[in-house]
Simulated scan of single mutants.
Amino acid sequence: MASPQASRSLEELMSEASHNVKKLPVALISCGVSLSAAALSLIFKALGGTFGMPSGATVHLFYGFLVVVVIFGLVEASFGYWVVPRDLDGWRATAKTMLWFSIFPLVVVAALGGFVF
């Protein structure tokens, strides 16, 4: 099962980062790494449940979405590590936008069972 405490601390970190600029790099790195890890764990699971007997297009769409989420998570984490700490005030709006855009894939991956280890 997913750890409720881990997801709650990630949500708290994202919420605090929108108010405190100094927490933006940590929030970007944490969210990006956890998003990539959860999507990678779904890539190695067999399709089932909602998908039933998936057709070729459904399988390609599912795995394509997961690959895009993994890449987005890695880009988000590297952006938080390399770019944002060097010029916090200059990249604040971009960092907040990236952090808020990561909520949708995070919710989808969590709904598909990505945080179940």
Rank of each mutant, 00 (worst) to 15 (best):
S34P: 02
R86D: 07
L106E: 01
A38I: 02
K23Q: 14
S34G: 01
F62S: 06
S55W: 00
F51W: 12
A57E: 10
A46W: 05
A95Q: 08
S30M: 06
S9V: 06
I71M: 10
Q5W: 08
G90L: 03
A37F: 04
F104W: 13
P25W: 07
A46F: 07
S15V: 02
S9E: 14
V84I: 15
A110M: 14
T50G: 04
G48A: 11
F62N: 07
A110Q: 11
R92M: 09
E12C: 14
S41W: 06
F44Y: 11
F101K: 10
S15H: 08
L40Q: 11
L42W: 02
E76W: 02
A17L: 09
V75Y: 04
V69W: 01
K23E: 12
G73D: 01
A2K: 12
L112P: 00
L42A: 09
L10H: 01
L106H: 06
V67C: 07
D87Q: 11
S18W: 01
I71N: 03
V75K: 05
T97D: 14
M1S: 15
I43P: 00
L106I: 03
G80E: 04
V70P: 06
V67R: 10
T97A: 15
D89R: 11
L24V: 04
V59G: 01
G73K: 00
L106Q: 04
G52E: 06
A46E: 13
K45Y: 01
S41P: 00
F72R: 14
A27Q: 10
A110P: 11
E16R: 15
L74C: 08
P25L: 13
G73S: 03
S15C: 06
G114S: 12
I29R: 12
E12Q: 14
A39M: 03
E11P: 00
Q5M: 11
Y81N: 05
S9C: 09
A111R: 14
L66N: 00
